[in-house]
Amino acid sequence: MAYSGEPLLARDLLYTSENSLVVQSLRARLGVDPTNGDGFGLGWYLDGPEPGLFRSTEPAWNDRNLHELSGAIRSSMLFAHVRASTGTAVQQTNCHPFRHGDRLWMHNGAIAGFRAVRRDLAFAVDPSLYPEIEGTTDSELFFHLALTFGLEDDPPAAVARAVGLIEQVGRAHGEPFPLQMTVATTDGRTLWAFRYSSEGRSRSLFRTADVSALREQYPDNPILARLALDSRVVTSEPLGGLRGAWREVPEATCLTVHRDGEELAPFAPVVPEAAPVG
């Protein structure tokens, strides 16, 4: 889940809705795994450019520290993730979000045949970035590939090139559908979210509808009353059942959320000519 808008308490997003992210950690409705108990993470921005980060291997539904922290963190850009491992270890460095400088990154999905393709993909990471990889997940390696291809300058182009490389390497290893992904990344000001899979059947991704229209429809809803008109929530599953509140992000799409609104653009992989070398 990613939030962009006027500063809001993390607890309002994590706990108060009927299908909050903490509820989803125990009983996800649309995910491949109904239980996401292999850790969680929270990333947020306050005064400086570098985001705060809290990650734990505890199940989100049973972590008192998360409950306490979420009642004290008020941010205009917030990332939260609950993890179900796709085969890598349950350890803190494998929990999302991942951070580099002022960037945060989350990924739902998997690189197919990761054990076989990992070495080839790792060699494509810029040597100056490689020492920062702390964990063993495909998601963190994916992040560093995107950084290698210019995530800090042009996120949509960088993610397209990273995906292009992952698919190229995966197919060379006999994987017909090398990648399944929904991705969110931010610099603390703009939010980018991607929905794509090699198979064309991607994991679910939703965004909130216009807040002003929702307030007219549900004038007594306390959460809507606290959201500014430019607020947006992007999430794997709707956080509640308000009719008209959630819009599905289309297949093969990049969603960009900024202070002036949001934009939807087609997303397609781009096979890079060569991986940059630091």
Score class of each variant (00 low, 15 high):
Asp63Phe: 00
Leu42Lys: 06
Phe114Lys: 07
Glu68Gly: 08
Val90Leu: 03
Gly37Arg: 14
Asn62Asp: 14
Gln91Leu: 04
Phe142Arg: 09
Ala89Gly: 12
His96Cys: 08
Thr137Gly: 02
Glu132Asn: 11
Arg74His: 12
Asp33His: 15
Val82Arg: 05
Arg83Ile: 02
Gly48Leu: 08
Thr35Phe: 08
His96Glu: 05
Thr86Ala: 04
Gly43Ala: 12
Arg29Ile: 15
Glu50Trp: 05
Ser85Phe: 11
Ser128Lys: 15
Phe40Asn: 01
Gln92Asn: 08
Ala60Asn: 13
Pro59Phe: 02
Ile111Gln: 05
Phe79Lys: 00
Asp33Phe: 14
Trp44Phe: 10
His81Glu: 00
His100Phe: 14
Ala89Ile: 08
Leu69Tyr: 09
Ala112Cys: 13
Leu78Ile: 07
Gln24His: 13
Ile133Cys: 06
Gly52Leu: 05
Phe79Ser: 02
Asp63Ser: 09
Thr93Gln: 15
Gln92Gly: 06
Arg99Ala: 02
Arg27Asp: 11
Gln91Thr: 11
Glu68Ser: 09
Glu134Gly: 09
Ser76Ala: 10
Trp105Gly: 03
Asp47Asn: 13
Arg119Lys: 15
Asp63Arg: 04
Ser139Gln: 07
Arg55Trp: 07
Ser128Thr: 13
Glu58Thr: 01
Leu69Ala: 07
Leu46Val: 12
Asp138Ala: 00
Ala122Tyr: 14
Val125Met: 10
Asp63His: 00
Ile133Arg: 15
Phe40His: 06
Phe79Glu: 05
Pro49Cys: 10
Gly43Val: 07
Gly48Glu: 15
Asp120Val: 14
Trp44Pro: 01
Gly87Ile: 06
Phe54Asn: 02
Ile73Trp: 03
Gly31Ser: 14
Glu58Pro: 00
Asn62Ala: 14
Thr35Pro: 02
Ala89Phe: 11
Phe123Asp: 12
Ala112His: 06
